[in-house]
Design a protein around this nucleic acid. Sequence first.
DNA 1: GCTTATGTATCACAGCTGTGACATAAACAA
DNA 2: TTGTTTATGTCACAGCTGTGATACATAAGC
Lengths: 206, 206
Amino acid sequence: MPKQVNPATRRLDVVDALFRIVVRDGLQHASLRAVADEAQLNTGSLRHYFESQQELMRFAMQSMLDRVATRMLRRLDEVGDVDALPLSEQRKLRASVLEELLPLDDVRRTEVIVFVEFIMAARTNPLLSELARTSALGTRSLVRRALTRMAGRGNLRTGIEIEAEITRLVALLDGLCLNAVLYPDVLSAQDCVAALRFHLADLEAH
Amino acid sequence: MPKQVNPATRRLDVVDALFRIVVRDGLQHASLRAVADEAQLNTGSLRHYFESQQELMRFAMQSMLDRVATRMLRRLDEVGDVDALPLSEQRKLRASVLEELLPLDDVRRTEVIVFVEFIMAARTNPLLSELARTSALGTRSLVRRALTRMAGRGNLRTGIEIEAEITRLVALLDGLCLNAVLYPDVLSAQDCVAALRFHLADLEAH
DNA sequence: GCTTATGTATCACAGCTGTGACATAAACAA
DNA sequence: TTGTTTATGTCACAGCTGTGATACATAAGC
């Protein structure tokens, strides 16, 4: 008995299936038929919800970016104002915002893998390139926000060049993601957290 | 008139063609026919030099890693002993070793793109995974060598944890590569060099 | 009732993929 | 010379790809 399906949630189910394939086999194996099978749908059904494979890809990438952004905003909200807390607590909470970008659990690990696969695909796929570029600028402005806040409260050591530090921290985050995803036995989740917190501590006045 | 071809150089020509395709279109478009066309060869000819597509892929990845390694060793040799030089000169030369890993010109840019594409493919391709893992450990030991040398000459600031710094520097390098390759207009080659040198300077005693 | 929209399913088609089998021809070895 | 290796080229096959066209049933609106 069709028709009582919610198209929006169906599309998200399909996206979840696509993510599973990307994590398991890589983006190049995420064909329409493979995604349909993984979502336990007929290919005809799948194509009823997505005009074309390009639209599916774009929607999937956008969904992934939305999930990350939503999680970041929720975390920012949870952290809120930390001025009243002790310094060590402030540090931990501030770090926890950027830790949302690292593959520290299965949810984030999935998102990071899908993220990297898509931005790599975006390098040679014009239909995805603006999404990739926008997300890169988003990360950069998030890091800028974090660093300027720290600077505004005198939590950065003197003589620091903000833009240069943004570049360094963004590269560090991306590099940690890549290494943790590709070589989890070389760079564990704990190592990631340690590296990030160490770097942030290093930026503080001392 | 066949037969006076050098099989080894032929294979390298094919690898060059494959690299061009990977840079231009991505690894997923590097099919046997596409590579053969790019190398101006018949597919039958190509298959005379490579048993299968998997062998071509493995050989291409190995070739890329060899090229990077060769370039690194040559650079290490060129730099040699820098103790006699002024400090600023020492810094520049030491940085130049790690800069061989960054996409600072067309040669290195090509290698970095191919490198990232292959290690990503290695994530879900068992035939490439050991190569990727070996290269990751190689980078790590290279960075370890650089940092322990600096430490041995008292060029590292006190209280530094070597293993943690290796992780941080490796991640920084990888992150710079990824950003420079994906968003060259956001992170220029000069920015890359500046970020690396700034980081190295930051590790020095102060 | 009838009509329209929605969802599911099947088929066919052209295009690409890796690969096996084979033909041809030139260079070398006996 | 004859035979063998090396090199190039062609064909066909099964498998997968995205996509267009189509059928058919169910639900909703009239």
